[in-house]
């Protein structure tokens, strides 16, 4: 048999396999943003033009539910973006920041400190909400090694089909239509609008947390150190914050607080614990939370953002981008979506 025939056969196999694999991956990897908005927060970031961002927030749900970039811009002209994801741990934040500095030149990085209390990988689902969206890089590969939980395959982060292939039996027509339709961002610059109001009175659930006396883990501290270095190398100020929660469920123990204060001192970083500023901010846990005190709703977030924006403009030399025509055009669209979501709730 002719050699060329075999070469063509091999080429056909490779190309056809790649095409079918690609098509299956596009269809089976979850892509309906409305079905699970939290999973697409970072995708919003990577699809946006982020070059003008001067303030970037990283951290877990306490961050992406607490700071509204729209309010920061409207009140102070600060161009900001939230790169938070559910249970974003320190190593996740580090990987995200590497990408942030690749795409923009922010002056201030705001890091939520809650992730510091975890020193072990926690959950595949939350890993995926960050790492599935990050482009391939040596940092991603390195963080993957530390972040994956037992039984997870690193390769499935390069080829998510290997993880999501099981969805073939649950496919719906919606999966096909959303594949070919344009989908709106789920957030407004990373802030996920929640307009519900549910007052806090649920019972304590401390069992899910590491013991209060636990010292921050080696891995968490190592990645924290890397974040500090990364920010310094990129001439960005790192600001530590603890978002306010009505902390009956995931309490912020004084042992945690002491360690963060010590870290801030050690690295010479500003640290704001908004739990101590509840009254000054004007937060009211009967109206400013959508899930009984665990997270702020849009009304609480607006209050906190207004308060924190003042701190930012007073302490850092940030540009008031409201004066730039180009920025106004960009923001008009975001503000319109923000107002709509505030009225109707997040899509």
């Amino acid at each position: 048999m002719k050699k060329t025939k075999w070469i063509w056969a091999v080429l056909t196999f490779v190309i056809l396999t790649a095409l079918l694999f690609g098509a299956a991956q596009a269809l089976l990897v979850p892509h309906d943003r409305a079905a699970n908005p939290e999973a697409f927060l970072l995708q919003d970031y990577f699809e946006a033009d982020t070059a003008q961002d001067e303030v970037v927030f990283v951290g877990d749900c306490e961050v992406y539910e607490a700071f509204s970039p729209v309010v920061l811009w409207q009140k102070y002209g600060i161009s900001s973006r939230v790169c938070g994801t559910p249970q974003q741990l320190v190593w996740h934040s580090y990987a995200v920041l590497e990408e942030v500095f690749e795409r923009s030149d922010p002056k201030v990085i705001v890091l939520g400190v809650y992730g510091l209390i975890y020193s072990e990988p926690q959950s595949e689902a939350y890993n995926r909400m960050v790492l599935d969206h990050l482009p391939a890089s040596s940092t991603k590969w390195q963080v993957l090694s530390d972040a994956i939980v037992e039984g997870e395959s690193k390769l499935s982060y390069a080829f998510p089909l290997l993880r999501y292939h099981d969805r073939w039996s649950q496919l719906s027509w919606q999966d096909v239509t959303t594949l070919f339709s344009h989908q709106e961002p789920v957030s407004v610059r990373g802030y996920l609008v929640q307009n519900g109001v549910v007052a806090g009175n649920a019972p304590s659930h401390e069992g899910a947390l590491p013991p209060r006396a636990t010292a921050f883990g080696e891995m968490a501290l190592d990645y924290f150190d890397r974040i500090v270095t990364l920010c310094r190398d990129n001439n960005a100020e790192l600001v530590l914050i603890k978002a306010p929660t009505d902390s009956w469920r995931y309490p912020w123990h004084e042992e945690y607080e002491a360690q963060v204060v010590a870290l801030a001192e050690q690295y010479g970083l500003p640290y704001y614990n908004f739990l101590n500023e509840i009254e000054t901010i004007g937060l009211n846990y009967t109206t400013d939370t959508y899930d009984a005190g665990l997270h702020l709703n849009v009304y609480g977030a607006e209050k906190l953002t207004a308060y924190f924006g003042k701190i930012l403009v007073e302490n850092y030399q940030l540009t008031d981008t409201r004066l730039r025509d180009h920025d106004c055009v960009v923001w008009t669209e975001d503000i319109a979506r923000y107002e709509a979501q505030k009225k109707e709730g997040a899509k």
Binding site: M1, K5, W6, W8, A9, V10, T12, F13, L16, T17, L20, F21, A24, L28, E124, G151, E152, S153, S156, L161, L162, R163, H165, D166, W168
Partner: peptide, 25 residues
């Protein structure tokens, strides 16, 4: 028939990847 073979092989690879039961746990 190498070309047919290539198509069959590609289909089987994708069938294993998509319909197979493997992965976490």
């Amino acid at each position: 028939r190498p070309m047919l073979c290539a198509v069959v092989c590609a289909l089987m690879v994708v069938a294993i990847v998509v319909f197979g039961r493997y992965g976490l746990g």
